[in-house]
Nucleic acid binder design. Structure first.
Lengths: 205, 205, 205, 205
DNA sequence: TATGAATGAGCGTTCATTCAT
DNA sequence: CATGAATGAACGCTCATTCAT
C-alpha cells in the first residue's frame, strides 16, 4: 500500500518534470531545453531532476513517448462518429496536421534519436510507435471490408508509408513555408490537403 | 596565370575544408560539427578555417549548396537514355534514394536553417532548391505531353509533394530500419520501391 | 539561521570573486580582466564564476558600484570634525586623491560603459554616481549658508565641474607623472594641491 | 637624392596607413582598430603594414602624435586676430572643445598608453605634448604682460592644470551626457562654457 | 619591398553531470 | 529524498604577429 502510494507520487513528480520540460521546448524549441531551465521552471533542484531521470536523453525520450500517446489519442478521437473508413483516413491525417500545429516541436523530438544520438529508439518508444501503426492498419482493414480500399493493399506497409510521408510533408511545410507561398502561391492547409488527396487516391480501388 | 593558380589553390583549400567538415558530419551528424574539429581533421589551425569561411554557418551553407547541386546532377544523369517520362520519374526518385545513402546527413543540412537559427535560407540555397523543383516540373510536363500523366496535375505542387514525402520516407528508413525489418519483414529497397509506386500511381491517368 | 548563513556565505563568495577581479585590474588594468583569470586567481572554475555573476559586465558593474560607495564613504569621513565648509571641500577633494591612489583603476571602471559597450550605465550605477554629486551639493549649500561661498553658485553644476576636473587631473598625474617631475619640478601632491586651490578660489566670494 | 625620394615615399606610405587607421577609429572607436582592417582599408597586405610599423602600438602612437599636432594647429588658429590674452585663453579652450567634437576618439588615444599598456609615452609623444604646454605658457605670459592675468601665476603649472581639467571635463561630457541633461538640465556647450569661466576667473587678477 | 596565408592563444559563455551535505 | 554548488570541457570566434615566398 505504502509502496503504491510512493510509486504513484514518484510518477506524479516525474510527470511534473516532464510538463515543465515540455513548456520549455514549446517556447523555444528543443535546443532551449537544459536541465538548469527545467530546474528553474519546476522549482526543483538540478540534483532532484537527476533523481527522476538518468540524463537529459531520458527526459526527451519520455516527452517523445508522451507526444506519441497524445497523437494516437487524437487519431482515435478524429474518427469517432465517422463510419466511412476512407473518411477516417482523411480525418486522422488531418488530425496529424493539427497536432503538429499544436506541438510544432514534435518532429524535433521524433528525429532526436537519429540526429542527436545515432542510437536506436528505446523499446517503449518503438512500442508506442507501433501502436500508431496498428491503429492505421485497423482503419485500412475496415476500409477493405467496406470495399472502399483496394484489396491488394499491404496495410502495415502502407501505415509506414503514411507515417514517413506525413512527417516529411510537415517538415517541408515548416522549412519551406516561404517557398510554398512565393513560388507555389498556396497555403499550408491547401498544400496539406493535396497531400491527403494523394494518399486517399492511392488507397482507392 | 599566377593569379589563376593562386585562386584555384584557394578554392582547393576551401574544398578541402568542406570535405573535412563533411567527413565529420558523416561520422557523427551535424551536431558533431565544430570549427575545432574541422581544424583537427584538416590539420589546419582554427584561425585558418576562418580565413576561408566567415563563420560556421557559411560552411554549412556551402555543404548544403553542394549537396543540392550533386543531387540535381544525379537527377539529370538518372534520366538520360530514358525517353519515357514516367520511367524518368521512377529513375530520379530512385536516384534520390542512392543520393541519400551516400549523403545520409543531407536532411540535417536542409533543416539546419529553420531548426538551428530560426533564419531563412540564404538566397543561393533557395535558388538551388528551386532548380531541383524545376527539374521535376519539366519531367512532369514532358509526361503530360507523352500522355502518360494526368492533365489536371499541378506540376510545381507535385514537385513539392514529392520532395517532402521522399525526405520523410528516407528519414523513416533511417530511424525505423529495425521496425521495418522486424515488423514489416521488408528491406529498405523494397519499401522504397513501394513508395515509388505510390508516387507513380498517383501520376497516372 | 541556516538560511542566513548560506546567504551570507554566498555573498562572501561573491565578494571574494570581486576581490580577485579587483586584484587583476589593479595589476594590469581593466583590459587584463578575463573570466579565466578570475577563475585562476580565485582557484574556482570558470563555471563557478558564472554561478555568481551573469556575465563579465556584471562583475565590472559591481566593482564600479563598490568603488563609488567607498569613495562616498571616504568623502563623508573626510569632513567629520571639520565645521568650515570650504575646508570640507578641500578635505573631500583630497580624499579623492587618496582614493585614486588606492584604486588607480577607478577611472577605467567609470568609463567602461561608454567606451567598451556603447551602452548606458545601469540604473544602480547612475544612482551611486548621483549620490556623490548630492554630497558635494550639500557641502556647497552649507558653504553658502556660512557665507564662505559666493551666492550665485550653481551647486549641482559645480559638483559636475569638480567631478570632471578632478578625474582629469588625476589621470594626468598618472600619465604625465614624469613630465610633471622633469619639466615642472613638482611633486604629485603639490600639483594636486594647486588643483585644490584652483577649485577653492573659484568658490570664494 | 634618390635616398631622399625613397624616404619621402616611405613617409607618404606611412602617412597613408595612418590615415586609414584614423578612418577606422573615427567610425567605430579605438576598439575597432585591427591590423587586418587597416590592411583592407588601405588595400595593402598585413605584412606591408608591419613593414612600416613595428606593431599596433606604434600606429596608435603616431595617431596620437598627429592628433596633438592638429590640436596645436587649431590652438594657433584660434587666437589669430585676437589681441586680448584672456580672450585667447577662452578661444583655445573652446577650440579644444570643437576639436574633441570633431575627433571624439581623441581621448581614447590620449589615455591609450595608460590604460592599455601601462607603459610610458615614447619621447616624440612627450615632446608634442610639451609643445602644447609651451603654447599655453606663451599666451599666459602675454596675459601677464597685458596686465590681465595675476602676476603670481605659475604658467607652466597652470598649463598642466588646464590640460588635465579640460580632458576630464570632455570625458565627463561624453560619459555623463545623460546625467548632465536629466539632472542638471543643461547642454554640453553651456556646461563647457561654465568650465571656461572657471578657468578664466582663476586667471584674473 | 611586398605579400597574405597561417598561427594559436585567447576571449566570453554554456551546460550536462557529479557529489558532499 | 533532496539539494545546489561546483566542475571543466566545449563552443564559436578574434586578432596581433610571423614568415616563407
Amino acid at each position: 500500500m505504502k509502496r503504491a502510494r510512493t510509486e504513484s507520487s514518484k510518477d506524479d513528480r516525474k510527470q511534473f518534470i516532464l510538463d515543465c520540460a515540455e513548456d520549455i521546448i514549446e517556447q523555444g524549441g528543443l535546443k532551449e531545453l537544459s536541465i538548469a531551465k527545467v530546474g528553474k521552471k519546476s522549482k526543483l533542484s538540478i540534483g532532484t531532476i537527476y533523481l527522476y531521470f538518468e540524463n537529459k536523453e531520458e527526459i526527451i525520450g519520455h516527452l517523445t513517448l508522451k507526444s506519441r500517446q497524445v497523437l494516437l489519442k487524437n487519431f482515435h478521437e478524429s474518427i469517432i462518429n465517422e463510419p466511412n473508413a476512407l473518411n477516417q483516413v482523411s480525418n486522422f491525417i488531418y488530425a496529424y496536421f493539427k497536432f503538429y500545429k499544436e506541438y510544432p516541436f514534435y518532429n524535433q523530438l521524433v528525429s532526436y534519436y537519429e540526429s542527436n544520438t545515432g542510437l536506436e529508439e528505446p523499446e517503449y518508444l518503438k512500442s508506442a510507435s507501433l501502436d500508431i501503426n496498428m491503429f492505421v492498419v485497423k482503419v485500412l482493414q475496415e476500409g477493405k471490408k467496406q470495399g472502399l480500399i483496394r484489396q491488394d493493399l499491404n496495410e502495415l506497409e502502407f501505415s509506414f508509408l503514411m507515417w514517413g510521408t506525413a512527417v516529411g510533408i510537415l517538415q517541408l511545410i515548416d522549412v519551406k513555408k516561404e517557398a510554398l507561398e512565393n513560388n507555389l502561391k498556396t497555403t499550408e492547409i491547401d498544400f496539406f490537403n493535396s497531400y491527403i488527396q494523394l494518399i486517399i487516391n492511392s488507397l482507392k480501388k
